[in-house]
Design a protein around this nucleic acid. Sequence first.
DNA 1: GATTGGCACTCGAACACAGCGAGTGCCAAC
DNA 2: GTTGGCACTCGCTGTGTTCGAGTGCCAATC
Lengths: 344, 344
Amino acid sequence: MVSDRSLEVLRVIVQDYVASREPVGSKSIVERHGFGVSAATIRNDMAALEEEELITAPHTSSGRVPTDKGYRLFVDRMSELRPLSSAQRQAVEVFLGQSVDVDDVLARTVRLLAQLTQQVAVVQYPSVSHARVRHVEFVPLAPSRVLCVLIADFGVVEQGVAEPEQELGEDALAELRAHVNARTGGMRLSDAADVLRELPETLPSERWSQQARDLAATLCQVIVEQIESTRHDRLIMAGAANLVRTENDFSGSVTPVLEAIEEQVELLKLFSEMAKEQHGVAVRIGRENAVSPFSEASVVTSGYTGSGYDVARLGVLGPTRMDYSNNMAAVRAVARYLSRLLGE
Amino acid sequence: MVSDRSLEVLRVIVQDYVASREPVGSKSIVERHGFGVSAATIRNDMAALEEEELITAPHTSSGRVPTDKGYRLFVDRMSELRPLSSAQRQAVEVFLGQSVDVDDVLARTVRLLAQLTQQVAVVQYPSVSHARVRHVEFVPLAPSRVLCVLIADFGVVEQGVAEPEQELGEDALAELRAHVNARTGGMRLSDAADVLRELPETLPSERWSQQARDLAATLCQVIVEQIESTRHDRLIMAGAANLVRTENDFSGSVTPVLEAIEEQVELLKLFSEMAKEQHGVAVRIGRENAVSPFSEASVVTSGYTGSGYDVARLGVLGPTRMDYSNNMAAVRAVARYLSRLLGE
DNA sequence: GATTGGCACTCGAACACAGCGAGTGCCAAC
DNA sequence: GTTGGCACTCGCTGTGTTCGAGTGCCAATC
């Protein structure tokens, strides 16, 4: 049975503990936040909260600390995210304002997020599954050396060199280029790959001997390989120093946590799980992360979009004792800003 | 006056201290490495070494620890780098073997280096100052929208969209493309930018009205901007966890060190200083790094090349108490392997 | 002159112990 | 349901003590 005031008590316990890193006792609660009641009453409430496993005492006789469950309730009860301060908004503008290519935007984004939250920030590269073909270009570099360039949405550019056994004439190359662009332009990359595999067969047989088709197939193959090799899922990280700074909030060392982040695999899994549950801001707290190195950490992520599609996630990771309110707001704001940049 | 044996003593002090992290005393030296002399003799040698400031005693009565100067002498006396073990060589092959684009190669490289050395690894992006123009392409996307693609050595690809006020015909575009490529192909990027700025004026006036030239200038300008905006100097890092693991080797926290690495600026300066002094493997030990957060760390770097030119550096950073021999060997090996990959 | 064994000395690490104080749980009274 | 009182718990901090690895110095030896 948790009364309304008890929930208020939980809230101040979370807030004070996040701020001070010290277990908070009944007395300090009545001192700092003038509830209209005495310390003994607060103690009763705390007993109820402890009964519900929302808080716990690290040592028999010491202040209380929120449990994972307590943080969860706290987060769920945050009805709305406080918007960023104007200084923070300005930082976003300045940081992401002048940007050139996607790599650059993402690099800035992740650093910005780390700075705003004082946590480790992680940005997942946009998935290419929704990216669309904008243009395919074949450029003869030398006889029997053709540069194949694939240009897609979100500034994704891939290139490779084909070395067909024989030279394909300038005219034939132009025709192939036109043909390829006509048939794949605007397609999603994965579909385009399928089309490209079959494409040489669809070239008009009047002008295309079997041999010429084979050469065309060589070129198309290079593009297909580029599509397939497009970095599947990759993360970039920033703010590792922030994690080290919060070292004391982890029972062991932060080393395994950092390693797991750099390893990327588990984190990518986590991101995709979170994407399934919630496409806005989602939070995982402590034990809710089954995987061992993260079970002592909290993760706040949000999906972001490019050209209207959900393309990937970004977020921050830190000790369960983190400023959820601020971090959720920052993650949401940065995700939205990034989405807007990528939408252009 | 340091005798030959004293230098041997220095060597084992370095080795044992690196291995065990504990100050090494005269007794343990004679136990582990059977010099033909007694502990007292070793003590005399140690006194001489201390006189020369090659070693120091953390506390009045405790074993000795190498000073920065001691490590320096040790490193300088390493006549040759022991080659990598076959297992390590194999790791290099496997890691860097199948690679697609430059970003991918560099990402793998930095992780490999971190793994081989158990330190933080850093790779500087290839400088474009030596990169050469391989091809420039103008692709009409729509009336009054032209995609400008610059393809350079080392797989550097930049692209941008120009939106001239009027449409430039397909033929004119082809002539411009041919003209640009003829005049800039093979040039270094910086020179090419200069040429491109003047280029519109060199178009034959028979076929190019002033207006058409202005349009051409718009396109060239996009390419110039790309050249100028090419990510100047950027680093990627891996193995932050390794730095945290060696936390105790730093007097304070490693936080400022990590921050400085992520900040990149100071590290880039350091890299360029080191490049001036030595283009192979270079080592900076502790105080030799004037900049504060690195003055407690050692940095081992090597230049690497692409198409025969020195393009950038890579290396590792760790506590002065590091395995210089192994790290120097690893850095050299990885730099060579990367150079070979980029040379293709 | 270099080397050696002996010896007194230093000083940090580890451990035990006491006192403090913040905080609790419980209970009787309001 | 709330409150003041009270005994109790237990981690933290500071103090002393012991232990031992390691040193510096010196006289004796090769």
